[in-house]
Design a protein around this nucleic acid. Sequence first.
DNA 1: TATATATAATTGCTATAGCATCTAATTGCA
DNA 2: TGCAATTAGATGCTATAGCAATTATATATA
Lengths: 144, 144
Amino acid sequence: MSLDDSIGFLINQAGRRISQLLAQRFAPYEVTTEQWSVLARLREEDGISQKELAFRVGKDQTNVTRILDQLERKQLVVRRPNPDDRRSFLPYVTEEGNRVYLLLLPIEKDVVAEATSGIGSEDLAKLKELLVRVTDNSLQRLNL
Amino acid sequence: MSLDDSIGFLINQAGRRISQLLAQRFAPYEVTTEQWSVLARLREEDGISQKELAFRVGKDQTNVTRILDQLERKQLVVRRPNPDDRRSFLPYVTEEGNRVYLLLLPIEKDVVAEATSGIGSEDLAKLKELLVRVTDNSLQRLNL
DNA sequence: TATATATAATTGCTATAGCATCTAATTGCA
DNA sequence: TGCAATTAGATGCTATAGCAATTATATATA
């Protein structure tokens, strides 16, 4: 029994490598892969709470706070007060954020295509399905 | 097209969740999941260089240096000078490291079993194969 | 053999991950 | 209504990820 038989290890290794590749391609634009994922999610559902956003990107609320700090510093996102709850801020993608998103989108697509080259569309669908399953199984047993 | 269609996102999300679950189970033993992976790999091939070890765990050499610092602090690993190259140190698992490894092994197996529950052995094999493919594809295109 | 080049490991830096804790605001219930 | 419990977000802390630069040693080549 080797480390290479551990699904946990294999998933994280694949994740590190594909993120590293994406990070290299994103580097000229000074946007990290995680900032990208938050920006992308936010573009799909603007104006949700940070807590909700954290859930939607599968990240800790603490991290989302800090990633939003970075995105706001770069003026890709703005936080506006939530009129219904004065504890809460709602993040929105700015014009510039939208522009950067559209600029990076094809780069991300390329990297995904390269990382999955040689994998048929059926296998790709299977891979996604199994990853979601692992995510859900883990989430279910997590003490959150 | 949503973030949820991105293999990169899905892999990293699954990786975060399963690591988080494993981290919760490892917490009482004060060993992190990444320390675990280095310890496990080192147990398979003692006495290789840190550079080689880094490659074998799919991590940056810098990180391996620091993870080894942690493992050495906990006396689970010792670094001995490489007699053939005075720039180099060779890490070895200690008795205590071996003991801790054997203690954590069944916990890791449990977590993997839980995270993959409902996935048949054929699909599991497929998942591993596809993850290795993604890793290799990404590695190939990385500027290292 | 002298010197330039390359290499192993470390250190410094920024960003992410996640836990515990804090503050301010909201909700629940006596 | 009034106060306790809960919640949203932020902050502090440690560990990991990866890049750039540093130090010490090895290797290659003029």
